Simulated assay, not measured.
Amino acid sequence: MTFERYVALGDSFTEGVGDPDPVRPNGLRGWADRVADELAGANPDLTYANLAVRGRLMQQILAEQVDAAVALNPDLVTVYAGGNDVMRPKLDLDAMVADYDDAIGRLTATGATVVMWTAYDVGWAPVFRHLRGRIATYNELVREVADRRGATLVDYWRFGEYRDYRMWDFDRLHMSPLGHRNMAARVLDALGVDHEIEPVVLERIPERAAADQRREDLRWMRDFLAPWVGRRVRGTSSGDGVGAKRPVLAPVESVDRGGSRS
């Protein structure tokens, strides 16, 4: 399967936060760039846009990115939305997913292949594990949308490899480069696209000593959790002042494709 015009929508997950690369737009690579690299290997004429912006909520993604994506006449769209919403204190899940359903319907009506995700299982993660029930409900609603709209589903919730901390950035919220690489392979597999991304194989490592884990937890609370909570109290976002990394369809340049097999 080959594609001509790939448009990626969403928040930090799709922008590529956690996978730094100073030569790329926004200083990030991420799984979507890696997918585009592989697709361009099969079709050098592929063009690719990435409209995702970190911190965006569902309504912001739908308002800012869906019309823009439709206007680009894509034949492949990937969209992840709702991850930031489910961490908010108050949320009407049914209403949010109903709006998502309408947007997915608009995207599939273009004739494009549309890929969407469930959210990952936070049961292993301190602080965030209390959201597990809400996320499980969100995921069931998303599965229904994918079935109803004929979208391709990447069922993140069921990917057990993401229970390993090496798949995550220091903030425990965004994937590490290893996690992004693995996700790119998962997306291409879901699309039925051949690729050359090497599988992630993690050797078992010794558990951290309790004192080391406490020090790491304290550093995480100081350097990530406190600023994260502070932004919510102030009503600000990590995405304030950040633009889409690839706002228009453009070829996947050879410099972008360097190292795409790693």
Rank of each mutant, 00 (worst) to 15 (best):
F3Q: 06
R5V: 14
L9W: 10
F13Q: 11
T14S: 12
T14I: 06
G18M: 11
V23W: 07
R24V: 08
N26M: 06
G27P: 02
G27N: 07
R29E: 08
R29I: 09
A32P: 07
A32M: 10
D33N: 14
R34K: 05
V35T: 11
V35P: 08
A42S: 15
N43Q: 09
D45E: 14
T47L: 06
N50V: 10
R56V: 02
M58V: 04
D67C: 00
D67A: 14
A68E: 05
A81S: 03
G83S: 10
V86Y: 05
R88E: 15
K90D: 10
L93C: 00
A103Q: 02
A103F: 07
I104H: 01
I104S: 02
R106N: 07
T108H: 05
T108M: 10
T110M: 10
V114S: 09
V114D: 07
V115D: 01
T118E: 07
Y120L: 11
V127P: 02
R129I: 05
H130F: 10
L131R: 14
R134V: 00
I135R: 07
E140N: 14
V142E: 06
R143G: 01
E144F: 13
E144N: 13
V145T: 05
R148P: 03
A151Q: 01
A151F: 09
L153R: 08
V154N: 03
V154H: 07
D155N: 11
D155I: 01
W157I: 11
R163I: 10
R166V: 05
D169R: 03
R172W: 04
H174V: 04
M175G: 11
L178E: 03
N182R: 15
A184P: 08
V187Y: 00
L191M: 08
V193N: 08
V200T: 13
V201I: 12
E203K: 15
I205Q: 10
A209P: 04
A211I: 13
R215L: 14
D217K: 02
L218A: 08
L218Q: 14
L218F: 11
W220P: 04
W220S: 03
W220D: 05
R222G: 11
F224Y: 13
L225Q: 09
A226F: 15
W228P: 09
R232T: 15
R232F: 15
V233Y: 08
G235A: 04
T236W: 13
T236A: 08
S238W: 06
K245P: 08
A250L: 04
G258C: 15
G259F: 13
